[in-house]
Amino acid sequence: MSKVVVALILALCVLHHDLWWWDSAKPIVFGFLPIGLAWHTGISVAAAFAWWLAVKYCWPARLEEGDS
């Protein structure tokens, strides 16, 4: 699972550089969000999901032991 999480976070870093919508405002998402801004809002939501996977499956056992 650790490898999946790392791959997901690296994929987000690559997808962050969305050159394909660089010069375009359209399509306008939900009628008001220019596509570039909508895409990056999606990156933020996806980052939260990726980090949720990270803390669920990759949290160091040593830290859990320290807590208990």
Partner: peptide, 16 residues
């Protein structure tokens, strides 16, 4: 809008 990508979405990944 690029200001969001510059700071906010990068921060969401890197800060965490």
């Amino acid at each position: 809008i690029g200001v969001y990508g510059l700071m906010a979405s990068w921060s969401g990944i890197i800060h965490s």
